[in-house]
Amino acid sequence: MRRQGLARYFRSGAIWGFIVLELIFFTVAGAFLSNSDTGFLDPGNMLLLLKQSAPLGIIALGMTVVMINGNIDLSVGAIFALCAVVMLDSMNWPILAGLGDWAIPFAWGLALLTGMGLGLVNGLIVWKTGVDAFIVTLGAMLGFRGLVFMYNGEQPTYHLNWTMVDIAEAGIFGLQTPVLVFAACILGVWLLMNKTVHGRNAYPVGDNREAAVNAGIRVGPHMVWNYVLIGFLTALSSITFYSASGSVNPNDGMLYELWIITAVVLGGTKLSGGRGSVIATVGGIIAIQLMRKGLGFIGADTAMVNLVIGSILVLVLFLDRQLNRKSKQDLRI
């Protein structure tokens, strides 16, 4: 029992320990290797890091919920792009264009509806057909990407509205809008998973689906709601990102799902469901973003970032396994 408790403690704390190590390493290494005048821990640098973590981070929160209840969503990258296309294109529609700046809330609303609608489609297919979520969302990843292309061909979609850019770049106390949205989402999803009946039910649904069914939890609708949630969060992420940039390429968001799943797994969420923490996922996202930024800071290129993050993922998996082994009582299988 004690070993398990220790492993549990290590797991929950490990990601923050890792972040501290990264900070120390890059601060020290940066002092020797970096050409920059400011240190790695410069507040401006850290705020920028938080801002850059926001788009992936917001989606990762939804992915955590979906993975805790035993599913996965590989289609978030495509949803991300499609929401942006809908948002930016809708502002060019005559009916919205005539509204001036009042078009903004409508465009945002449409994007959110798009994200939730796509999530709903995934969720309903997973529920009603019983096809594995991995396959359903793998298909959707292709299908939704196809929809992105069908919308506007291979052309980028753009619409620049300065008011929208201002909102997206605004900030309080130096915290910019994306950071604030991210923080609000963290709080919201944390409350959902720790304080509400729906959130608590996600754990038994992922841990032991049959038991959850027998206990009277409506597993199907539960999963659908979580897909709608991840669709919503993906749309929100898309809105915060593209309101500032005003232009989306049909290939945007590709491989996001892989980065996000990496972060969620680094945070300790179990692939097969039933275990995971929202806060640890935030740690996972920050750890990855730190790694990207830190390696850049000391002069390594993106190649090194990919190499290091991939290796760390495998290493974490290995350590987790070593810690959770019941050592000598295991069968040699």
Partner: peptide, 23 residues
């Protein structure tokens, strides 16, 4: 031999090999 989850291992390798190629 180490019995690690193949989804995560190959996900990690996807990233790592991409980095290797770029390097």
């Amino acid at each position: 031999y180490l019995r690690l989850n193949s989804l995560i291992v190959t996900l990690g390798m996807l990233s790592a090999i991409h980095g290797l190629t770029l390097t």
